[in-house]
Amino acid sequence: MENKSDVEEHMKAHNIHWKWHDDGAMTNWTVLPAMLKYRGDWVWFTVPHANNNSYMKNNPSWVDKDLPDHLYPQQTYYGDGTVIELEVLQHIRETIWQVAVGFPLQKGDLLVLNNIYCQHARLSFTGKRKLAVVLAMQDQDYPED
């Protein structure tokens, strides 16, 4: 994007809030619900544990950085803007690991997931691999009941 007005139009179109700083940098944020009604079921559809700066602070690329929490590439808060306690984030992380299921994929395997019903990720890996990923968007709403 060429200028601030183009950026601001993009932000408005995607319901993203922003703030310009004196040095020309910008901070942006979105406010999203933690729960989503999908095909009549309420589902947890958020990742505050992975988008929180406590996750980034343990990443080797960020471990030695001394930044205010809100200036990390990502940070999460409760809907009212208060900080999510580390104990709550850890509880979410532990719960996710407790219900996690692994798939040892082999060459030629195809794994299809519903992104709303199934949180997904990849574990670390050494060696050579190639993953092909396709994301399909639905263009219809489903009835809530």
Results as ranks from 00 to 15, higher is better:
126 T>C: 07
78 Y>S: 14
97 W>I: 03
94 E>T: 08
43 V>I: 15
40 G>M: 01
72 Y>F: 09
104 P>D: 14
117 Y>G: 08
111 L>W: 12
123 L>H: 07
28 N>K: 09
111 L>M: 13
18 W>D: 08
40 G>R: 03
5 S>H: 06
10 H>S: 12
137 M>P: 11
75 Q>L: 06
106 Q>S: 11
63 V>L: 03
144 E>H: 13
48 P>H: 01
128 K>R: 10
5 S>D: 07
134 V>P: 01
87 E>H: 09
69 D>A: 06
127 G>A: 10
10 H>I: 12
79 G>C: 05
80 D>N: 14
95 T>Q: 04
18 W>C: 12
101 V>T: 13
123 L>E: 04
86 L>S: 15
69 D>T: 01
77 Y>P: 02
51 N>L: 14
3 N>F: 05
68 P>Q: 05
107 K>H: 10
79 G>T: 02
85 E>G: 09
4 K>T: 13
49 H>I: 02
136 A>E: 04
123 L>C: 08
59 N>T: 07
74 Q>D: 07
52 N>Q: 00
80 D>T: 06
73 P>K: 05
3 N>H: 11
70 H>E: 13
61 S>E: 15
85 E>H: 03
33 P>D: 01
75 Q>P: 14
130 K>H: 09
79 G>A: 11
143 P>M: 03
138 Q>M: 04
103 F>G: 01
119 Q>A: 14
75 Q>T: 15
91 H>P: 00
26 M>R: 04
1 M>Q: 14
21 H>R: 15
127 G>V: 08
35 M>A: 02
128 K>C: 05
118 C>P: 00
135 L>K: 08
108 G>R: 12
30 T>G: 09
89 L>Y: 03
125 F>R: 05
138 Q>D: 11
49 H>L: 01
138 Q>N: 09
4 K>V: 12
103 F>W: 07
131 L>Q: 09
95 T>A: 07
18 W>Y: 15
72 Y>I: 00
129 R>C: 10
13 A>S: 15
72 Y>H: 05
15 N>G: 07
119 Q>T: 11
20 W>V: 12
70 H>Y: 02
18 W>L: 15
58 N>C: 10
15 N>A: 08
77 Y>K: 00
55 Y>G: 08
67 L>K: 02
128 K>D: 11
61 S>Y: 14
119 Q>W: 10
111 L>E: 01
39 R>T: 02
66 D>K: 10
126 T>D: 14
112 V>N: 07
73 P>D: 12
46 T>M: 12
120 H>Y: 00
2 E>P: 12
70 H>T: 06
142 Y>H: 06
81 G>A: 01
144 E>Y: 08
46 T>R: 02
105 L>C: 11
70 H>G: 01
119 Q>M: 13
109 D>S: 13
93 R>Y: 05
1 M>A: 11
78 Y>F: 14
93 R>L: 03
18 W>E: 06
144 E>S: 13
32 L>N: 09
44 W>M: 05
40 G>Y: 02
96 I>C: 02
14 H>D: 14
56 M>S: 12
20 W>N: 05
91 H>M: 02
38 Y>P: 10
73 P>S: 15
97 W>V: 05
25 A>D: 09
